[in-house]
Amino acid sequence: MAVYTEVPFDEAAALLRALNLGELTELRGIHGGIENTNYFVTTEREGQHETHVLTVFERLGFEQLPYYLHFMKHLAGKGIPVPEPAADAQGEILHTLQGKPAAVVNKLRGHSELAPTESHCRAVGDMLARLHLAGRDFGMSQPNLRGLPWWNETVPVVLPHLSASQSALIRTELAYQNHVAALPAYAALPRGPVHADLFRDNVMFEDGELTGFFDFYFAGNDSFLFDLAVCLNDWCIRHSADDSDGQHDAALAQAMASAYQAVRPLNAAERSLLPAMLRAGALRFWLSRLWDWHLPRDASMLKPHDPTHFERVLRERVGLAPDLLASLLEEHSLAA
Rank of each mutant, 00 (worst) to 15 (best):
F218P: 04
R130D: 03
H195P: 01
R297P: 03
E50H: 15
A241R: 15
M72I: 12
V313W: 05
T43H: 11
A219F: 02
K78S: 00
P193E: 09
L325Y: 05
L232Q: 13
Q98R: 14
A12K: 02
L19Q: 07
N38Y: 05
L169S: 00
V313H: 00
P275S: 09
R59S: 14
H161D: 09
A299R: 07
S223E: 06
A185G: 06
D242T: 14
V313N: 04
G91Q: 14
E58D: 11
A259R: 03
L302D: 08
L114W: 11
G47Q: 07
V157G: 07
L287G: 01
W291S: 15
A13D: 08
T117R: 12
L198H: 12
P83N: 06
L24F: 01
L328C: 13
V41Q: 03
G47L: 04
A268P: 07
Y176A: 11
L131S: 08
R289Y: 11
L278S: 10
L266D: 02
E270P: 02
E316C: 09
P322Y: 06
R279I: 01
L295N: 15
L169M: 10
E118F: 05
A280Q: 11
T308W: 06
R171G: 12
R312D: 02
L328M: 15
A229F: 09
H161L: 08
D298C: 02
F213G: 00
E6A: 08
T5P: 06
P184T: 13
A12P: 05
M256L: 15
Q90R: 14
D292S: 06
K100C: 03
H52D: 12
L24P: 02
N36G: 13
D207N: 14
R284Q: 05
E50I: 03
Q64K: 14
